[in-house]
Design a protein around this nucleic acid. Sequence first.
DNA 1: TCGTTTGTTGAGTAATTGCCCATGAGCGAA
DNA 2: TTCGCTCATGGGCAATTACTCAACAAACGA
Lengths: 317, 317
Amino acid sequence: MVKRSETPARLDDAARAGWLYYVAGRTQDEIAAAMGISRQSAQRLVSLAVAERLIKVRLDHPIAACLELGSQLRRKFGLKHVEVVPSDPASSSTTVGIAEAAAAEIERWLKRPEPIVLAIGTGRTLKAAVDQLPAIECPNHRIVSLTGNIAPDGSAAYYNVIFSMADAVKARHYPMPLPVLVTSAEERELLHGQQLVRSTLNMSAQADVTFVGIGELGIDGPLCVDGFLEKDEMMELMRGGAVGEICGWIFDVDGRLIDNPINERVASAPIPSRDASMVIGLAKGKRKFKAIRAAVVGHQINALITDEETAEFLLKN
Amino acid sequence: MVKRSETPARLDDAARAGWLYYVAGRTQDEIAAAMGISRQSAQRLVSLAVAERLIKVRLDHPIAACLELGSQLRRKFGLKHVEVVPSDPASSSTTVGIAEAAAAEIERWLKRPEPIVLAIGTGRTLKAAVDQLPAIECPNHRIVSLTGNIAPDGSAAYYNVIFSMADAVKARHYPMPLPVLVTSAEERELLHGQQLVRSTLNMSAQADVTFVGIGELGIDGPLCVDGFLEKDEMMELMRGGAVGEICGWIFDVDGRLIDNPINERVASAPIPSRDASMVIGLAKGKRKFKAIRAAVVGHQINALITDEETAEFLLKN
DNA sequence: TCGTTTGTTGAGTAATTGCCCATGAGCGAA
DNA sequence: TTCGCTCATGGGCAATTACTCAACAAACGA
């Protein structure tokens, strides 16, 4: 976690230095002279401004290749919305680029004047996206989490994104006061029957837009790494044809939720309607190819933010 | 004028290079390797991306000092909206900073879903602001020029901003097919009576939002430099108490339009209502202090985008 | 076809920036 | 008060970026 809470005065200086550097186009030497500090301090302020995301860079040009891939994907899979960002071949990150694009998309939704319900899933990509959000006030909107916020060991689940979101966005937030996986279908029924949980579930079913990460399976996949499933449970699932998951809901290569005890123990809200609302999946990278493909063909999502490389895979296969 | 119309393919490369540099954070060496070009070429693409404004940087932090100045100004002068950007003490430019802020404000208006009429004045500051606009499509909106587009020598007036705006913004544009200054009040009546001109004038009177520059008088002021007024006419005006102008309408230190033959020859549309609409003035800099002050106290405008230095002057005087 | 012009390229170099480290100030605990 | 710790600072230096220049290539016009 990045160090929180720099003193406001320092952030103020950082903003000023960042402004002079990026907007006014001065050198760090000039900034140092203007602000009466050493060049090194000026450099620190500038990089602090970047680190604290006071400076937002956006690319305002539709890269033709990406647009083209996007519209082909939209056509081929009948998606409502597709955004393709350039690939960075040298980077193995599964978030760079997508996070920025997704943050911009989230921001667009949050800036709508009419009140909306925004549902949010979980995962590293989504976390990275939410971390890119600037401070926004939108008291009219409601933001609801689709997944529980309690990790298997009882601690708060780190990748439960809604809390990160609450840091930046001033809106009503509704976390899901549940574990991610419960011990049995019966327990799930019981928990979902609670008044508080029921109202959150109802709200999520009415989401106008939903952002979810798409997780791959495998012993390196998030479900195992974060301790939700044991290795042998994972192997069992994969033998049963599972290839990916969204909010814990595990699906096969055709994007159908598989019939397996694990899926009966998922306490997440169902993914909101792909007919009546926008469900935007975020994912890229070779390891996720199969999972993304399945989610798209099985209409677990109806919109996608991904990168060129992944887009090309989806078009060819 | 910046060189127009790079080939799309090159802009595409520039966008890609810019993305890799600013968003993905790679060095120019890495970009060069990835794109199969020399490092120098990569550098050129990156700076092309910046020069063509494909890369937009925005500062997402309310600098406390600026906010404070802004709200004080709003209170003191009863303005509807004030934006204060940091001063860059080393730069004598009258546009840096304001242009970016104004472009962002224009963009916000243009992104509104309901159709609006946006009126636009003239001047270097406004030109710089419009040059910062990204490409936007907004077929619902109408953009109307308050000032004529014919310079005294009969050529197209360079600082008639609406044409620059048309380059970036896809909306209906209504230039004012008139000179800026005509030879007499009678000629103005005649020209304003023409059907085409009348409908443009009517539209400007219904503007929802108006952006204007504030010009200072003096033999170095825009009216003289651009050849609209002779030196002696200017001296005469200043002896008569004139301190500034907006769209050619000349006012005194209290912001009242002065009673002078020149003002009877101004062919611009009247500044839209400050009671019913938003009229945003853009200006900063010592030379404009008096003119800005007059425009604000005389309610020629009801909103202001300026810099710290100017804001401090306005508060103290 | 042959200059001429315009624009692109890579090399070299100057300017700028990022990072490491030693220093010392500030502060709490002994 | 002194010790030990943390952290901001500025110097120095390596990495990175921006600029200039000369060579070259494509486009153009005679």
